[in-house]
Amino acid sequence: MSADKTTRLFLALWPDPFIREQLREWRDAWGWPQDAAPVADDKLHLTLHFLGNLPDERLPELLDGLALPFDPFAVEIGRAVLWPRGLAVLEPHGEPPELLALHARLGEALVSLGLQPEQRAYRPHVTMARRAVGCKLPASGPSVLWQARSYALVESRGGYQVLREYPTR
């Protein structure tokens, strides 16, 4: 493997087909302006940590070093919000302590692997679209009750590819 090759990586809760369909229905309920870029069905997820571009040679170490035992938990998602710079997101109704604990433990694992987690405060969400300034937010909709039984290390190279899924203990 060449030392100059890199892979763009992130950790995420990766939806099963049932949750993905519910997220798609939410995304399709928004009124998107012409220039908006709705997220494709197969890219809908809840990010835990963005790792950025890392050397391919580190992948085996990362795949093993990011395996953490955790207990399953539920996240109830269903608040449509437009963030600054036109980022349309679906936020949870609350931040489950188990989600925050998983995020924190993964951050510690990143540090132990010599990586620096993002410094900004963690705001769990599912991105629905980019460039969505002026979108019409759905008034309400059914909550998505996401039973988190795994998280994934995902490669972003045009499309998304799950490199490894880490199930609960």
Rank of each mutant, 00 (worst) to 15 (best):
M1F: 11
M1K: 12
S2C: 00
K5E: 15
T7L: 15
L9V: 01
L9S: 04
L9W: 04
L13A: 15
P15F: 08
P15Y: 11
P17Q: 07
F18N: 15
F18V: 15
R20Y: 09
Q22E: 14
Q22G: 13
E25K: 13
R27C: 11
D28L: 13
W30D: 00
G31N: 14
P33F: 01
Q34E: 15
D35A: 15
D35G: 14
D42P: 00
D42E: 15
D42V: 02
L44Y: 08
H45N: 06
T47Q: 08
T47V: 07
F50K: 05
F50A: 01
L51Y: 06
L51S: 06
G52I: 00
L54W: 09
R58T: 02
R58D: 12
R58Q: 15
L59P: 03
G65A: 09
P69W: 07
F70N: 06
P72T: 06
I77D: 05
I77A: 13
G78F: 08
G78W: 05
A80M: 00
A80W: 02
V81R: 15
W83I: 02
W83K: 10
W83N: 07
G86V: 07
V89H: 07
H93Q: 15
G94M: 10
P96G: 03
A101R: 13
L102H: 02
L102G: 04
H103A: 10
H103N: 10
R105P: 12
L106P: 03
L106W: 09
G107I: 04
A109G: 04
L110N: 04
V111M: 04
S112G: 12
L113A: 08
G114R: 09
Q116C: 02
Q116N: 10
P117C: 05
E118H: 08
R123V: 05
H125C: 02
H125R: 01
T127A: 04
G134C: 10
C135H: 14
K136C: 09
L137I: 12
P142Q: 13
P142A: 15
S143F: 06
Q147T: 00
A148T: 08
S150E: 14
Y151I: 03
A152S: 14
V154R: 06
R157E: 13
G158I: 03
G158T: 05
R164G: 04
R164T: 08
R164P: 07
R164L: 10
Y166R: 05
P167W: 10
T168S: 13
R169T: 10
